Simulated assay, not measured.
Amino acid sequence: MLKEETLKKAQDGDLKSIEDICSLTWETVYRFVYYKVQNRQEAEDITQETYVKALSHLQKNDTQIEQFTGFLKTVALNILRDRWRKRKRRGTSVNIEAISPEETAAEDTAEISAQRELIRKALGSLSEEQRMVVELRILKGYSVTETAKIIDKKETTVRVLQYRALKNLASILKDNNLM
């Protein structure tokens, strides 16, 4: 728990107090950010940026912050939202010169149809639970927790079902020379 005295010293620029604040709260903030971005490097960058912004705010403004960890999480969430907005505005870039119309048009649709049919049959050979887990986790992008709630199973059961389903699919597709 952070002491009010430590925050006051940090506001005045005391490096030892700033270091104490960071060492007491960094793990909580990092875990919060990592949960949101699921990328170690990005989580580290955002956590660092969170401390820079929060501490500069503390030093510029003489405000009382009751729950400093909550304040840090709010700053981190605002940084995340800003990053997500920037990505959304930018969209994805496509290099039109790199696309060859001849190659794109020349793809063998019969081969693609045959592959789709084999994949459909491979999915059909799975148990009902395995197929449902593959559909929810991989095709629809649900998390393990969400999938567990939907199929009314434990998270560990969902992970095992997914592992076994993917192992079975890989075996079937390998036998049909698709892998």
Rank of each mutant, 00 (worst) to 15 (best):
T92A: 14
C22S: 08
R85M: 03
T25R: 01
T104F: 12
D62K: 14
T109M: 14
A76F: 05
M1F: 05
V134E: 00
N78K: 08
K154R: 07
T28S: 15
A170E: 15
Y142K: 01
K167V: 00
R40S: 12
W26Y: 15
Y35L: 09
L2S: 07
V29L: 12
L139C: 02
Q130H: 08
L161S: 03
W84E: 15
S125V: 02
N176I: 03
N176Q: 13
S56C: 07
A114L: 10
L123Q: 01
A106L: 12
M179W: 06
N78H: 10
E146M: 06
I150Q: 02
V29Q: 02
R81D: 11
T47A: 02
G124C: 12
G70D: 01
T50L: 03
E103Y: 04
R116V: 07
T28D: 15
K167I: 00
L55G: 09
K8A: 13
A110F: 13
A98T: 02
Q115V: 11
T25L: 03
E107R: 09
K149W: 01
K3Y: 09
K121N: 08
E5M: 05
R83A: 05
K121F: 06
I112A: 07
N177P: 01
Y142W: 03
Y30F: 15
T63M: 14
L126I: 01
K3C: 12
L161H: 05
I151E: 04
D14S: 07
E102S: 07
C22F: 13
Q11C: 00
R159N: 01
E19A: 13
E155L: 02
R90I: 06
M132C: 04
